[in-house]
Structures are given as C-alpha cells and as structure tokens.
Design a binder for these strands. Sequence first.
DNA 1: GGCCGACGCTCTGTCGACAAATAAAATTTA
DNA 2: TAAATTTTATTTGTCGACAGAGCGTCGGCC
Lengths: 239, 239
Amino acid sequence: MAKAAQKQDPAATVVKRGEGVSHVYEILRNEIIELKLVPGSPIDETLLSERFAMSRTPIREALVRLAADGLITTLTNRTTIVSNIDFLQMGAFFDALTLMYRVTARLAASNHVAEDIPAIRAHQATFAAFVEERNVLGMIAANRDFHVAIAEAGRNPYYTALFKRLLDEGRRILRLYYHSYDDNLPRQYVTEHEDIISAMVARDVERSDALAIAHADQIVRQIRSYISADNRSSPRIQL
Amino acid sequence: MAKAAQKQDPAATVVKRGEGVSHVYEILRNEIIELKLVPGSPIDETLLSERFAMSRTPIREALVRLAADGLITTLTNRTTIVSNIDFLQMGAFFDALTLMYRVTARLAASNHVAEDIPAIRAHQATFAAFVEERNVLGMIAANRDFHVAIAEAGRNPYYTALFKRLLDEGRRILRLYYHSYDDNLPRQYVTEHEDIISAMVARDVERSDALAIAHADQIVRQIRSYISADNRSSPRIQL
DNA sequence: GGCCGACGCTCTGTCGACAAATAAAATTTA
DNA sequence: TAAATTTTATTTGTCGACAGAGCGTCGGCC
C-alpha cells in the first residue's frame, strides 16, 4: 500500500444525501489550495467518482463550484484543469489583497461586537502556536483564518468573500514559493497581529488602517522576495 | 397563446453540446436581475428542464453557478429560491459599491490603453441614447456596461468580478424600487460619465477618484430616496 | 521520408430513471 | 373540533448509461 494511505483519506467518509457535493467541494478545494493538486494538471471526473465512491453527477457539480471560485478552469468538451497561478497578474493580486486588508480592518474597528473578539484571539493563538512549532504551512492557514475572522467582524459579506478568495490564492502562491524559513518574519507577524487586535478593540479606525497597510506591505514584500529568489536563475538585467 | 410568447423565448434556441449549461445560466441570470423571477420565489428544476427542452442535469449545473453568484439560494433537500434582496445589508452594499467605483476608476486612469476608449465611449453613447428615450431599464443596463468597461480597462480581474456582482445587485434593487422618472438625474449622469471619461483619458487618478466618489454618492442617494419613498407607509419616527 | 486524413479510443455532456427527503393531505384519536 | 400521526405526493439528489467531441494513432499519399 502507498504510504499516503496510512492517513485516512477524507474522501472515504460516507455522507448523507444532499451533502455529497459540498463534501467533494471542500476536499478538492483544500487539495488545490495546498497544491496537492498541481496547477495546470488535468482533473479526471471518472477517477474522482471512483475515489469518492459517487457517481459523476455530484462530482461535476462540485467542479462547477470550484470553477466559479476560479480554482479550476473548464475547457469545454475537453477537460478541466487546476487553475494556473498567473504571474502577470501578481500586481493586481497584491493590490486587491492590500485593499481588502485595509477595508476589513477599518470595518472591523467600526462594526465589531464584543462577541467577535474571542474567535479572533483564538485564531491568533493558533497562529502563534504554529510559529513556535516553526510550522509554516500551519501558519499560513491560521493567518488566513485570523484575517477572515476580522473581516467577518467587519460585517460586509462582499468584502469577506473577495478577501477569502484572495487569501486562499495567497496560500497557493506561498506554498509554491516558500523555500527557507526566516525566524524573524513570523514573530514580527505575531506582533503585528496583536497590534491589529488592540487597534480594533479600541475602535481606532485610522490606526487599524495604518497597521493593515503595514501588515499587507510586509506580506507582499515577503512573497515578492520568495518569487525573486526563485527567479535567481534568470536575474533581471541591471542597467 | 400568452402574449409573452410573441417575443421569441431565448430558451427555445437549440444549442450545441457543451453550451447547454451556460445558455441556461445566462438566461436565468438575466431574468433574475431583471426581476422577471421574483426574489424569494421557488425554482422548479423539472419545470425549467421542460422549458429549455433539456434534462435536469445541465439545469442543475447552471443553478449551481447562479448560487455561486449569490443570485439564488439553495435549501438542501428542499428547494432553491431566487435570493432575496437583503435590506439589512444595504449599507454594506453601498459601501462596497462606492469603493469599487473608486478603485476601478483609479486603475482605469492609470492602466488603460488607447484601445479601451472606443468601447467605453460606445457604452456611454448607448446610455445617453436610452436617456433620450427615457428608457430607464435600458439606462440601468447600459450604465452597468459602461462601468464594467472602465473596470476592465483598469485590468484588475478581482475588482472587476466584485464590481460586476455589485452592479448586477444594483440593477435588481433599482428595478425593485424604481417608481417615478426624474428628468434631471439621468442627464446629470450623462455629464458625470463624460467627466469620468475625460479624467481617465487624461490619466488623472485623483480627479477620477473624486468623480467616482461623487458619482457613487449620487447613485447611492438616488437608490436611498427610492427606498425611503417606498417606505412612506411606515415612516421613521423623528425625535 | 514527411505530411495529411481516416479510424478508434477516451473523456465529457446529457439523458432518463430511481430513491431519499420533505411537504401536504388524509385519517385517526382525544 | 383540534391536535397528532400516518399516508400520499411532489421534488430533489444521485445513479448508470449513452452519445458526441477531441485527441492520438496508424496508414496512405505526395
């Protein structure tokens, strides 16, 4: 048996009628974001239907949802592939990500209620724990949950939806480019998160905004450095 | 025969293999936005499959796409209904709409190329023509296309996607609340559009931003006035 | 020997049917 | 008569099967 089979495949779980589609959707979504499914690789419906022990119909509906999220690309009458990460639009991605960091932080400072805080702190604690463990992939996921919680406290579902999509895309990019662990960065993120929380609790919109900008810049800079480190084989020409 | 049958139902069109789903999707999407399908009303898959002369499978896949757009709501094992317009979140809607007006206008001023202009001007001309005809519903649709064209010139697909969704939601709200035709407003919009174009062509980011804010405020104010006019039966208590 | 077209294979798009889940109707019971 | 419960009916979720559209392969032709 393959070694991977030791860890129980969640696809094996039996689900009730009406949950089949979301079950497949959630699992595939995770595997795409975690790059277990390589960008550009084809997706075989028949294979999936065997793996999930379902007919192709619910599989296809899950794929339609993933396509709506932009995680997969459907080539009509041909095949569907895991969406590629588009380097040309990296600028647009960073721009949108930064803006969403800002507006969600601002709204959270304005609109949060006391009940929102525990969940946010819990995600931050999880994040800090992963930092101690030097578990980068756990950090990335916890970071996503932390910021989503803040966005939800801001109570603008349009922003939250876009932010989720961007953060997930960020997870894919980070997985793709992550190479070396730098002790300093994660600890700095922990501190920045703490600052963001306190500004939010104090309902200080402008400070929340400023911190969000700094945080976003930091993350963008990190991703950029990963990318350029990866491009070292084809260095930019310096004039 | 019903009078509606005089206008050829686009559902009757025969489509090639692989286009069935998008065909259904487009038509239903339009009917939801144009409120031909009333918010809250149930959607019968069997009925649709008869109407489109297709099996339920492609119909269901189209419905999944609409659900991803937030245009319909699926109640598991029960039924799916046309999404209601959520008045409690009207503030969030206006906020996001204004922000997208702004960022797309800014980006268009920065990133547009000469080839983008003709399409934008064409949409503006269409809009102006509808104003002359006093065709409000046409105006609303043309206005949407105009701003989408600007967003596309800004070349940030994340913003464009959210903006489209917001503008479509706006079309639904306007259809719902539109009552009386005011001669002045539409002409003002035409002027504002012209200003937006010239600021964009001049690559004046800040002026584009300012105009976008003013334009958005104007539209938000208009929708708000429609809504409050509609609520006249239950007036707010003035203290 | 290389290019072009017919053939077959694989995979997707669509179909009709069945079964579970829920809502509505009918019936019983207090 | 009203409430509770069983029965019926409708509608969704899932299934297995078929047919069309590409893609690769093989053979023929220049």
